[in-house]
Simulated scan of single mutants.
Amino acid sequence: MKVLITGASGNVGRYVVKELLSKGETVVAAGTNTEKLKKIFGETVDVVNFDFADEKTYEKALEEVDRVFLMRPPHLGKPEDLYPFIDALKSHNIKLVSFLSLMGVEKNTIPPHHKIEKYIEKLGIPYAHIRPGFFMQNVSGIHSVEIKENNEIFIPAGKSKSSFIDAADIGLSVATLLHESEKYKNTAHTITGAESLDYYNIAKILSEVTGKKIIYKKPGFLNYRSYYIKKRGLDKNYVNVTVALYFMTRMGTAKMVTNEFYHLTGRKPRTFLEFASENVNCFV
């Protein structure tokens, strides 16, 4: 049987695919841009057109599939947007769904991840939720624009700390869960990096690896929201979710460090210094 990967071209999805292939699994990469998926993965995977908003794409995507990596696309801010596909997983007797959730979401009802987890559990679908800390790729990706152009980190996290984790480490964790589906049936895993850092620490590390003087700007929520919607042109629903996440971060929800990644994989998670050094081109 096959493993379906939603969001296969994303930061985490492509690593899930890579690690599953290394474990000998047959992988189906799903997305709305099949040509992009073919360019990324070539002949190593089956590629299928899939759209959460189009129920007609579900049947083909789930053909001969018994395990699923489920990722909420950033533009779908409502948990209900994923419910029809989760219903389809139930009707296809999927033996494990690994949902990319969020650290601390079991106690935090604000992000959509909370309701999605609960809906999967309510339907009785075997699950293995993965609850990572903040992605290192958030810094090298969406927030890298201000770092490159203005030498500043523009994130409304105050003085809070986050236990950043590399998306590659998340991908390996998810692949482990899906590959050993019976072992990890009906479990949840909070995975983090090895250290908890504030954005002053991040600025110091980035200054070290780039040779530039990078500062942490520490904007307020309203300033951040206005800038990302009006200046950066990002979707309002997406920005609202990030505001909620950074609000919770200020409450201390993102600082916890766990050993779960090591217990799952037998490896130590990559540090932010290692990540920044290997991805320095994202910041200069």
Rank of each mutant, 00 (worst) to 15 (best):
K2R: 14
V3Y: 09
S9P: 08
G10W: 05
G13F: 00
K18T: 10
K18G: 03
E19N: 15
E19M: 09
L20H: 00
K23Y: 07
G24D: 07
E25I: 10
T26E: 15
V27M: 00
V28H: 05
T32Q: 14
T34Q: 07
K38V: 04
K39I: 12
K39Q: 15
F41V: 04
F41P: 00
G42I: 10
V45H: 03
V45N: 02
D46Q: 13
D46N: 13
N49Q: 12
F52A: 05
A53M: 13
A53F: 11
D54H: 12
D54Q: 11
E55P: 04
E59Q: 12
K60Y: 08
K60N: 12
L62E: 09
M71I: 15
M71G: 07
R72W: 01
P73A: 04
P79M: 02
D81N: 12
K90R: 13
L96I: 11
L96C: 07
E106I: 12
N108G: 05
N108H: 10
N108L: 12
I110T: 15
P112V: 00
H113E: 07
H113N: 11
K115Q: 12
I120R: 01
E121W: 04
K122G: 01
L123R: 01
P126D: 05
A128H: 05
A128E: 06
A128R: 04
G133Q: 02
M136K: 05
S140Y: 01
H143M: 13
V145W: 15
E146A: 13
E146H: 13
N150T: 11
N150A: 09
N151W: 09
G158I: 07
K159M: 10
A167T: 12
A168H: 13
D169T: 04
G171M: 03
L172Y: 05
S173F: 09
A175G: 02
L178V: 07
K183T: 08
K183W: 05
K183A: 03
K185L: 04
H189L: 04
T190G: 06
G193I: 02
D198F: 08
L206V: 11
V209K: 08
V209Q: 06
P219T: 02
S226A: 14
Y227M: 08
K231C: 06
R232E: 07
G233L: 05
L234V: 02
K236T: 11
Y238C: 03
V239N: 02
A244H: 10
F247H: 14
M248C: 10
R250D: 03
G252H: 07
K255T: 09
M256N: 13
T258N: 03
T258F: 04
N259E: 13
L264R: 11
R270I: 10
E274L: 03
E274Q: 14
A276P: 08
N279E: 06
V280C: 06
N281Y: 15
C282M: 14
